[in-house]
């Protein structure tokens, strides 16, 4: 059951939702989603697990917590979306761009303990995290940033990288 898995990971119970629709009405990203948050929770409730995991909704959620703030049942869709992303990623159901983004992010955290933004963006482009049109569009911006001296290539790495990796390995199998 996906719903119970979500509850286990996020602590939020999708079944407790009354389906009032306040979340969807409040969602800034609703216009690009396959399903609004309410609908997604409903699909979870009735056990349409595949639809849930395949929908783009969870990847579009901007984690703005607007739904969470307004929910009359004190349920957080945002946190449910995190849990769903965890599960989807484990099952490798993930849009290409997102995959590049998250993998690179994780790599940075595990390698350096921090995110080195300039390097991160470079790697992202190489990994296919950006469409060609986006790259073209962003070139101008890149040049500007370079001129301003905002892009620095020095890598910062923390001493505790070892510990971070250890923590990661401990929690790697929490999601099945």
């Amino acid at each position: 059951m996906l719903a119970s898995q979500v509850q286990k990971i996020s602590g939020e119970n999708p079944l407790a939702c009354y389906q009032c629709g306040n979340c969807t009405g409040s969602c800034p990203m609703e216009f690009v989603m396959d399903y609004g948050p309410r609908r997604l929770i409903h699909l979870l409730q009735i056990g349409y697990d595949d639809e849930v995991l395949k929908s783009n909704t969870i990847w579009i959620c901007a984690s703005c917590y607007n739904c969470t703030y307004r929910c009359p049942r004190k349920i957080s869709f945002t946190r449910m979306a995190f849990a769903l992303k965890n599960i989807a990623m484990k099952k490798n159901i993930i849009p290409k761009k997102c995959k590049a983004f998250y993998e690179t992010f994780l790599k940075h955290v595990l390698n350096y303990g921090r995110l080195n933004e300039s390097l991160f963006i470079n790697e992202l482009v190489l990994k296919g995290g950006k469409d060609f049109s986006e790259i073209v569009r962003d070139i101008n911006l890149g040049i500007k940033l370079w001129r301003k001296g905002k892009l620095k290539m020095k890598i910062s790495k923390i001493d505790g990288v070892k510990d971070i990796v250890k923590l990661y390995n401990l929690t790697k199998d929490v999601i099945k």
């Binding site: 079944l15 407790a16 939702c17 009354y18 389906q19 009735i46």
Partner: peptide, 14 residues
């Protein structure tokens, strides 16, 4: 009772 039932995992179909 409604919220309790929801939380216990009873599934509601409108």
């Amino acid at each position: 009772w409604y919220s309790k039932a929801r939380e216990l995992g009873v599934k509601f179909i409108r």
